[in-house]
């Protein structure tokens, strides 16, 4: 019974992985791609690891998969945040249909103050 529940968790995680990669292909600029891919692939991989834990049980591999899950939840948003900040500082433009960019406005203000 618990093996069936684990297989259901693995299937859900697999579907979210495929949706995240589809978002990586379809969406128009770096920030949207980063959003879709980080959310979907993080939860999908965590779901696959939790299914592995349910099937294997409290053995060495099961405990290690739980630790790996906690590690992924803690580090994947930090990596996404670092890549987004680096891309914005490197001058990657937003998509032309985007509505507002407060960050670029504030950065320009700081640069003008520094020149004065």
């Amino acid at each position: 019974m618990i093996n069936i529940i684990g297989l259901i968790f693995i299937s859900i995680g697999l579907a979210f992985d495929v949706f995240g990669c589809l978002g990586l292909v379809r969406l128009p600029d770096v920030y949207c791609r980063l959003q879709a891919a980080t959310k979907c692939v993080t939860l999908g991989t965590c779901s696959i690891l939790f299914g592995t834990f349910l099937i294997v049980g409290f053995t060495a591999a099961g405990i290690k998969s739980l630790l790996c899950m906690i590690f992924l939840v803690l580090t994947a948003p930090v990596a996404a945040h670092a890549i987004a900040r680096g891309a914005h500082r490197a001058g990657v433009k937003l998509w032309e249909g985007s509505i507002v960019d407060k960050y670029a406005e504030d950065k320009e203000g700081e640069a003008q103050n520094r020149i004065k």
């Binding site: 992985d17 791609r33 991989t45």
Partner: peptide
């Protein structure tokens, strides 16, 4: 971005 996401997905493959 794609390399980062690929790295997370390989972990699921290993599991």
């Amino acid at each position: 971005v794609a390399i980062d996401i690929l790295g997370i997905m390989i972990v699921g493959l290993c599991a």
